[in-house]
Simulated scan of single mutants.
Amino acid sequence: MKIQISNLTKKFGTSTVLDNIDLEISSGMFGLLGRNGAGKTTLMRIIATLLTKNSGDITICGMTVENTKDIREIVGYLPQDFSMYPSMKVYEAMDYLGVLSKIPKQKRQEIIPSLLGKVNLLDYQNTRVKALSGGMKRRLGIAQAIMHSPKVLIVDEPTAGLDPEERIRFRNLLSEIAKDRIVILSTHIVGDIEATCENIAILNKGKIIYKGKTEELAKLAEGKVYTVTVSSEELDKFKDKYKIIAMVSHGNNAILRILADNKPFEDAKVCEPTIEDGYMLIMGGKM
Rank of each mutant, 00 (worst) to 15 (best):
I25C: 03
K105N: 02
P273M: 12
E176L: 05
P113L: 05
G191S: 15
R181H: 06
P86H: 03
V129C: 01
N7P: 03
N20D: 15
T64P: 02
E24A: 10
S231W: 13
V90P: 07
A246N: 14
N120R: 13
S15Y: 13
R72A: 11
S26H: 10
E92S: 05
L173T: 04
S231H: 11
I258P: 13
S231P: 04
I146K: 01
A268E: 11
Y91E: 08
Y242M: 11
P79I: 04
K137P: 02
M63N: 14
R169C: 04
K269R: 15
G135I: 00
S114I: 08
S15P: 01
Q4K: 14
H250W: 06
L8Y: 10
Y85Q: 12
K219L: 14
M280F: 15
D70R: 12
Q4M: 09
A38R: 03
R167I: 04
F170V: 13
I154H: 07
V248S: 06
E110V: 07
C197W: 06
D267K: 13
D156T: 10
A38T: 01
G37Y: 06
L8D: 10
L122A: 13
I168G: 02
S133G: 11
R35S: 14
V270K: 13
D156Q: 09
P150M: 09
I3C: 05
S232M: 14
E233I: 10
K2C: 09
L174D: 00
R35M: 10
D22G: 13
P79E: 09
P150A: 03
A254S: 15
T274S: 15
V270Y: 02
K286C: 09
L100E: 03
Y226R: 00
D81G: 09
S175K: 15
G161A: 12
G141R: 00
V225E: 07
R171F: 03
K11G: 11
E272A: 14
V152Q: 08
T9G: 11
Q109M: 10
S101H: 06
L23W: 05
K89S: 10
H148E: 06
V248D: 03
S133V: 09
T16A: 13
V230T: 06
K211D: 02
M136A: 02
E233K: 12
R167W: 09
R257A: 03
L97G: 02
P158M: 06
G56V: 07
G161D: 11
Q109H: 06
L51E: 15
E157V: 11
L281N: 04
T187I: 08
V190N: 02
E66H: 13
L122S: 11
K243W: 10
G161Y: 13
G13A: 09
V230D: 00
G285F: 06
S231Q: 10
V152C: 05
I209C: 05
E233C: 02
D261T: 07
V99E: 12
T127N: 12
